[in-house]
């Protein structure tokens, strides 16, 4: 569901209260949306974004409370401050939505994404890809004599950077999960 090149700055903590609500500056926000895990809930959220012309940069969803049938949707979106406020209000209006958190303004948060990258290479390029993987703490989860599959976890930026480096070395395929995010501390 995630776009390959996730834009930079998705976890910047802007001083929200100081922002001009009528500003035309486009910001990137990470929203955590807690929903009932019922049929069609994802279609509702996606339909809201497409129907009202909002952006989705990345979207992940999984049930996080099996007993309570709650899922957590993490959406990275872009817009002016007033558009971001509209997105939150519109999400909050959906009947199966319980909570909407703007992790970009609610305080510090951590964001992680997992990427799987297949690099097809031999000789020096193969060795170089392994060396770089070590620096990025990516691990090898599959290998043949001509290829590796690396697993890397980190911010979208880190995965972008790793993919950029792998490209000239023989990057053949990329799969990314999209962003999962939580606020820091116990707030």
């Amino acid at each position: 569901m995630s776009a390959l090149n996730i834009k930079k700055g998705s976890s910047s903590h802007s001083a929200y209260d100081l922002r001009d609500p009528h500003s035309q500056v486009v910001e990137t926000h990470t929203l955590a949306v807690l929903v009932d895990n019922e049929a069609g809930v994802l279609a509702r959220v996606i339909g809201l974004f497409s129907g009202r012309g909002y952006n989705i940069e990345s979207l992940t969803v999984a049930e996080v409370d099996h007993k309570g049938h709650r899922s957590r949707i993490t959406v990275v979106t872009r817009g002016t401050p007033s558009v971001i406020e509209q997105i939150k209000a519109q999400l909050g209006r959906l009947v199966p939505v319980h909570e909407v958190h703007d992790l970009t303004v609610d305080g510090p948060s951590v964001e992680r994404e997992l990427g799987l990258l297949k690099v097809v290479a031999s000789g020096d390029k193969r060795i170089e890809s392994l060396r770089l993987a070590e620096i990025f703490r990516a691990s090898v989860v599959d290998s043949t004599l001509e290829s590796f599959v690396f697993e890397i976890t980190g911010t979208p930026d880190k995965i972008d950077a790793f993919a950029d480096l792998m490209r000239p070395l023989g990057l053949a395929e990329v799969a990314r999960t999209g962003v999962a995010a939580l606020s820091r501390g116990f707030a």
Partner: peptide, 11 residues
């Protein structure tokens, strides 16, 4: 009654 109506068009 609908928070999304507020500041949608006119601040």
């Amino acid at each position: 009654i609908d928070p999304s109506s507020i500041n949608k068009v006119i601040p």
